[in-house]
Design a binder for these strands. Structure first.
Lengths: 152, 152
DNA sequence: TTAAAAAATATGAAATTTCATATATAATGA
DNA sequence: TCATTATATATGAAATTTCATATTTTTTAA
């Protein structure tokens, strides 16, 4: 293992997960920045691509970040014309975030690039069995989430 | 899948990796903060636990962060008496970071907690085959790293 | 040997992120 | 109903992070 110096870190589950995530994302995140987006903004676009009109809180959870940070990211994306806020009829506390036309175009484009990058990545990962890695991670994530919920 | 709204994100490899890492680390990182450490500081302690006297640059790479950020994290840890800088004899550019006695004690303690947390976590992950997850991730990480190097 | 390039670290300034809390609305329960 | 609690979002201020670049030392190559 060329990545870490000693015995503990290089085989520590939390390190392996963080480092794998970082290594897998590195190139694509650079591409995202080339496209003039920051990673959190790309995450918002991806969430809204899947389901338009999500609440700030949901966007924050799905994008793995804090609510107040998401509020400011949505501020910036709104100023830039990628999304608009609409208040939820029926619950005045909620703010629904919608893609603008420009936001839709950009999110589709970047999602397409993400899919292509993912294909490339998976085809490069023959050793780990590309077909199994995603189902494995899905099960891992489910288990982790239920374990975490149980602990709350 | 309860985590994400739509079809793209919830099965996107980079999301699965980031979310798994986040979900796996969440509880332990909260514990790290209880112990008065920030996550990057804990990473430094873990690296130096494995190999004392690493350079700033190495610590940054192993801890998955930028060099200038690591410089400032080491500043703080030094002020706090957890590490000391020593200049490398033989290469005056290099700064070697060493654990103090307090730093050694703390790093051993937290590494021990990390090991215990990892055992708990792995034993909770029966569904994904605890014995295979780490070797799989090690292979995944190796593949990702060599793919990334090839791309540079 | 010496100029140029590379490597390691540090730092100023701008931007982002965090933390605590404010504000507004909705839900709950006596 | 009305007070209390919970939920959703926003915001000020402090802290951290990023980005570009300065500084110092070493390596390279002519």
């Amino acid at each position: 293992m060329t990545q870490t110096p000693g015995k503990f870190v290089s085989s520590y589950l939390l390190y392996l997960l963080a480092a794998s995530s970082e290594a897998a994302s590195h190139q694509f995140h650079a591409r995202v920045r080339e496209l003039g987006l920051r990673v959190p903004e790309w995450r918002v676009l991806a969430c809204l691509y899947d389901q338009d009109g999500l609440m700030i809180t949901q966007l924050a959870r799905y994008s793995l970040m804090e609510q107040s940070r998401m509020t400011r990211i949505v501020d910036q994306m709104e100023k830039r014309g990628l999304v608009v806020r609409k208040s939820d009829e029926g619950d005045g506390r909620r703010v629904r975030v919608h893609l603008t036309e420009a936001g839709q175009k950009l999110s589709s484009d970047v999602v397409e690039e993400a899919r292509e990058h993912e294909r490339t990545l998976l085809s490069a990962l023959q050793e780990v069995d590309a077909e199994r890695i995603k189902p494995s991670l899905e099960r891992l994530l489910d288990s982790l989430n239920s374990w975490n919920s149980a602990k709350q």
